[in-house]
Nucleic acid binder design. Structure first.
Length: 567
RNA sequence: UGGGGUAUAGUGUAACGGUAGCACGACUGACUCUGAAUCAGUUAGUUGGGGUUCAAAUCCCUGUACCCCAACCA
């Protein structure tokens, strides 16, 4: 029984997959599973979209079905080709494949128009001359019913004529709409004669000036799903109230009718997903563009050094549900580190260099030491790392007066340089202001490779680079964009911008990195030993290497320091 | 005339009338040529109140809280 329980746990389906599985069993859709990811090309995709993408494409692949990529481009005022391109790139990057099924709602404009004509003929739609403001009045409120538009009872002939002329561009923007004739007293406000078409003399990024009337989401979306033979139309919770309308249109038309299901969108601590607010961050210069490594956009995460695998694992881990929740950013980081640890080549880099002279190392001598590329993956092999008389170590790895539990280098103390030698600090050189500028150390030639033949131990192993061979690099360190778990948690009268973290970006110009990385390419992911995971930035050139810090290694020493400070 | 949804450790989820489990986080410890990783352990939960039942997170009744809806946005 325990065994079956465990199996059940592993195969446990979320409620949407359960619906799909049940339908498959009942034969509801003749054994088909067909989903779609339908973004509006009005912004860049973010990690919240990744949840939806992984759900829709994931279901298709798990159940032997198909998933379309469809652009819901029904509002020319907000949409641009730039967004189409970025969305295609991002979904691809995540590792999903829509094969030849790349669709655009705008491809169906004629079909939608024809169907609208059909509804008019059936007496289920009418042209309305109410202004936006009047329409709001006629709609009623949440607690009071609306009232019928004075244009509601126009004849089918008149409606047909008017609608044709709307399409032909005879009327100015906002002067008329086509509306569904449903029920102005419905407790569901969406059913109070919703607008199907509005007049918009605007150029569309794909259809140009071919149309001056554009379909509204509620009218268009079900038709798109129907045309494509979608079985399960999966969307977010806020569309729950729209489902009766989705169903109404398809029923009225008596056409193929998919099933809509809704799930909760993703919220993440220390970030936010609203396209509007992300746009504001970009426009107000809080970040350097949509692909700024601090952004939760997929392009930002990619540039930051996230792997698509880690994002997919994350999406699987958070599950799918119907209630709003906020996932801890630490869970994303966990999934990230897990994948990066297994796959990232190790390399030694010093972010804040402190010069170390090995006083007993012969002038002119050179050593090439063997270093393991990835201890988690023997097939990654080894590489040579050059050693020299003058080295750099991390400033943080030396303390003149070490507190308790500080295991690293200190006067008189012996530590190991990774893959190299044991060294002992003999002398601390300071400048006039008293800053430590250099250490004089001696090394033990017997410890070459990192082990002492006499079996003596050291408490710390430091990363290092040879001054003579090191490459210069700029390293960009990132922290949360916001100082609060919930960026919208602000004093009255302020907006989320008040919570932006002034220290979310720190640039280190004078970093030193081992020569093996000289041919690194943008998006290469590396682990800088003992520091964290880093990714070569697109700004990187052979003359000036630039790296982004993706995420740090867990840092027990930092925790101890914090505790010591508290005391 | 309001309607539609949802509540399980700090966080995210599982348990489909039958032992409240997993993951993240936090905290111990072991191991370690990364204070990483790994391993072992600790921590902590069913929204309140009634009821049905041998047995309730699950079914019923009744409160409470939170989310969504009144764009010619999606």
């Amino acid at each position: 029984m325990t065994e079956t329980n465990e199996q059940n746990n592993e195969q446990r389906l979320d409620f949407i997959r359960q619906i799909v599985a049940d339908d498959l069993e009942k034969g509801t859709w003749d054994g088909r599973v067909h989903t779609r990811f339908p973004p509006e090309p009005n912004g860049y995709l973010h990690i919240g979209h990744a949840k939806s993408i992984c759900l829709n494409f994931g279901i298709a692949s798990e159940f032997g079905g198909k998933c379309n990529l469809r652009f819901d481009d029904t509002n020319p005022c907000k949409e641009e080709q730039e967004y189409v391109d970025s969305i295609i790139e991002d979904v691809k990057w995540l590792g999903w494949d829509w094969e030849d099924r790349l669709y655009f709602a705008s491809d169906y404009f004629q079909q939608m128009y024809d169907w609208a004509v059909e509804l008019i003929k059936k007496g289920a739609a009418y042209v309305c001359d109410l202004t936006a403001e009047e329409m709001r009045e006629y709609r009623g409120t949440l607690t009071e019913p609306g009232k019928n538009s004075p244009y509601r009872d126009r004849s089918a002939e008149e409606n047909l004529d008017l609608f044709t002329r709307m399409k032909n561009g005879e009327f100015p923007d906002g002067s008329k709409t086509l509306k569904a004739k449903i029920d102005m007293a419905s407790p569901n406000v969406n059913l109070r004669d919703p607008v199907m078409y509005r007049i918009l003399h605007a150029a569309h990024h794909r259809t140009g000036d071919a149309w001056c009337i554009y379909p509204m989401y509620d009218w268009a979306h079900g038709l798109e799903d129907s045309v494509e033979g979608i079985t399960h139309s999966i969307c977010t919770l806020e569309f729950e109230n729209h489902r009766p309308l989705y169903d109404w249109f398809l029923d009225a038309l008596e056409i193929y009718h998919p099933r809509q299901s809704e799930f909760a969108r993703l919220n993440l601590t220390y970030t936010m997903m609203s396209k509007r607010k992300l746009l504001q961050l970009v426009k107000d210069g809080h970040v350097n563009g949509w692909d700024d490594p601090r952004m939760p956009t997929l392009s930002g995460l990619r540039r930051r050094g996230f792997s698509p695998e880690s994002i997919r694992t994350f999406c699987k881990t958070i599950g799918v549900n119907k209630f709003n929740s906020t996932v801890d950013y630490a869970l994303l980081e966990h999934c990230l580190r897990q994948h990066l640890n297994a796959t990232s080549p190790r390399v030694m880099a010093v972010l804040n260099p402190l010069k170390v002279v090995i006083t007993n190392y012969p002038d002119g001598q050179a050593d090439d030491l063997d270093a393991v590329n990835n201890p988690e993956d023997v097939s990654a092999g080894t590489r040579k790392v050059p050693f020299g008389k003058v080295l750099y170590i991390e400033q943080e790895d030396f303390m003149e007066e070490p507190p308790k539990k500080f295991f690293r280098l200190a006067p008189g103390r012996e530590v190991r340089l990774r893959y190299a030698f044991f060294i002992t600090c003999n002398e601390v050189i300071k400048d006039e202001a008293g800053n430590i500028v250099e250490l004089h150390c001696t090394y033990d030639p017997e410890t070459r490779g990192g082990d002492a033949p006499d079996g003596r131990k050291v408490k710390a192993t430091l990363h290092w680079v040879s001054a003579e061979h090191a490459l210069n690099a700029e390293v960009r360190l990132y922290d949360h964009l916001f100082t609060k778990e919930n960026p919208d948690d602000v004093p009255e009268g302020q907006d989320f911008a008040a919570n932006t973290n002034p220290d979310s970006l720190k640039v280190l110009e004078n970093c030193k990195i081992e020569p093996s990385v000289k041919d690194t390419k943008p998006l290469d992911r590396l682990q800088f030993e003992r520091l964290g995971y880093f990714c070569t930035d697109k700004d990187s050139t052979p003359e000036k290497l630039v790296f982004n810090k993706t995420v740090g290694l867990k840092d027990t020493w930092a925790k101890i320091q914090k505790q010591q400070k508290k005391k």
